[in-house]
Structures are given as structure tokens and as C-alpha cells.
Amino acid sequence: MLDGLGVDTLTVELSPTFQLIMSVSLMVMMFTVALGLKFQDFIDLKKEPGAVAGGVAAQVLGLPLLTLGLIMMLNPAPGVALGMIVVASCPGGNVSNALTLFSRGDTAYSVSLTAISSVSAALVTPVSILFWANQYGPTSALVDTLDVDPTIFLVQTAGLLALPLVCGMSLAHWKTDLAAVMKRYLTPVAFSILVGLILVGGYTNRDVLFSPDHNLIPLVMTHNAVAFAAGALAAVAMRLAGPKVRSLTFEVGIQNAGLGLLLLLSQFGGVGGAVAVTALWGVWHITAGFVLVGLFRGYDQLTKNTRIS
């Protein structure tokens, strides 16, 4: 049992001005993501609807369900569980596309899944967070104490996510050249926001992150391993080809931790345990992702050498 004594007594305090900055940062991030989305990114939905639907289900339903199971087994502090649920409810990010490319996976399939999860995030992410948080009693009670109004949360979050997504995709469709220029300049801004959030979250909760009393590092490593395994097993269950197995492994294992941090800071009062888990996930999932890339590439090389011999 992870009692997490004291882990949720820490909060990241936000002034009204900083809350506004967080909201603007969230919109910039989503707008930048949308600038890179094209209608052809959804082509696999028509070509292989079963593979796409299964991949989306693994992300939207499979990972949160397994996360809830892990929470029930480990019984973490309410805020820690909230962080796990928020991470599991967030869409994948462009990092999964890059890791898929490096590992010689099916990049087109990866891009299609990322595009769908990003576009649907405006509705799916807030609904998923509230639904799964209510399935674990301590976290449900915590959300009640934070005085989070479900209707307001859904409307605000959907607006913050949907508006920049619609604007970005519309600009990318009608003004391709302008969108390309804007994406080139905004991408480092969005990346800086992401890195900054993870660093601030990690530094603010450094005592929690590295305290042996809370076991957050093993917890996050286990949770992330479950996510990668869920993607791989879902792909195998659907009998997808090898490159698609790699794609779905990264799509489910790599989540937009930056978005999760923004939601926690702007909508959930910066609960220390949740912020710590999400910040730690943001660092670890990329590290684990590159380890997997190395394993996949090593397997390819070993297979190649075996064939030659």
C-alpha cells in the first residue's frame, strides 16, 4: 500500500495572472499541434478502420481501465491516483510519431492515431478524467474537496482545447504556407512550455519525487510499462503487422504530460501528488521510449544477422 502520507498536502499555488498564463499556454500548445494536422493524416481511418478503431480504443479505454486496476492494487494517495488518471486520459503527442519513425514502425498509422486523439481530446480528455477519477473513492473525494464543478470543467476545458484545434486545422487547410511558417516559429515555443512545465512541476515537488516514503519513481515506471505493454498487446490481439505493433506501443505508452500538467495547474488547484506524478511521467516516458527504440533496432539487427548467417 502506498499511503503517500503528506504527498497531497503540497500544492502549486497559482495567482490569477499565472492561471491566465497557463490557459494561454494550453491554447498555444494545442494550436501548434493543430497546425501540423492535415486531412490526409486521417487516411488510415478509411483504409483500415478496424486497426484505427482498435488503436483508439486502446488509448481511450484500455489505458485508463488498466490504470484504474493498477490504482486499486497499489492504493496510492488520492492526488497520486489523480495524476495517474490525468496522464492516462491525455492524448498522445508528436513524440510518439518520432519514436515510431526511429524504431522503423508504421509512421502513417502513428500519425493517424495521434491526429484522432488530438482532435477528440477536447471532449474525451475532460470526460475521461472526471469519469475515471470518480471510480476511485479517495480521488473522487479529493475532487469534491477541490470544488471542481463538472459542468464548468467540461465547458472550460473543451473550449480551451477545441478552439485552438479548430483554428489551427482550418489555417493549415486554407493557408498551408502561412500555417507552415507559424508552426516553424511556434513549435519551439510550445516545446519550451512543455519542458518548462515539467521542470517547474519537478522542482516544486522535488522532495516528493525523490522521497523513499512515496515510491513515486517506481510507481511511474510501472505505470508507464503497463501503458507500453497495453499498446503492444492490443496490437498483437488485433493481429497487426510488426511495424504497427511498434506504432501502437508508442501511441499508448507516450502521453501528453504537458497537457496533463496544464490541466492540473489550471483546473485542479495544483495538487502536489498529481503534479509530481505527471511531471515525473513527462521525463520518464521519453527515456523509456528511447530505450524501446534501441531494443527494437537491436532486434532488427539481430534478425538481419541471423538471416545472413
Rank of each mutant, 00 (worst) to 15 (best):
F228M: 07
T303D: 07
I193D: 02
F290R: 12
T139A: 15
A279H: 08
M221Y: 09
D177E: 12
R307D: 14
T287D: 05
F228V: 08
F153K: 12
L165N: 10
R297F: 05
G137C: 06
I254F: 09
I71Q: 08
A229T: 12
N134A: 15
Y203C: 14
S117M: 04
G54I: 04
A234M: 07
F39S: 14
L74D: 02
T157D: 13
L259Q: 13
S140H: 13
K183M: 14
S192H: 05
K183G: 02
G269A: 04
G54D: 05
K244L: 03
G242V: 09
G273E: 04
T204S: 15
V200K: 15
N205M: 15
P64I: 00
G62E: 03
A230F: 03
Q267T: 05
A108F: 00
V283L: 15
D144Q: 13
M84L: 14
A232Y: 09
S96E: 08
L10D: 00
A276K: 12
L264P: 04
M27W: 02
T17K: 05
A88C: 10
A172G: 05
A108Y: 02
D149M: 12
L45E: 10
F228C: 08
V87M: 08
S96I: 04
M73I: 11
G6S: 08
L10W: 03
V86W: 08
T222R: 11
A122T: 10
V283E: 05
F228E: 01
K175S: 12
G79C: 07
V275L: 14
A241R: 11
V56S: 02
G69K: 01
S266C: 06
L65H: 01
T100I: 03
T157K: 13
K46R: 10
F153W: 14
G105A: 09
N215C: 13
V200L: 14
L197K: 09
F102R: 05
Y136N: 13
S309W: 11
T9A: 11
A274I: 01
L26S: 11
M1W: 10
M29A: 00
K38C: 00
G105P: 05
V208H: 14
G270N: 08
L45C: 14
G69F: 08
L265Q: 07
L240D: 00
L295Y: 06
N224S: 11
L2R: 08
L14A: 13
V87H: 06
V111I: 07
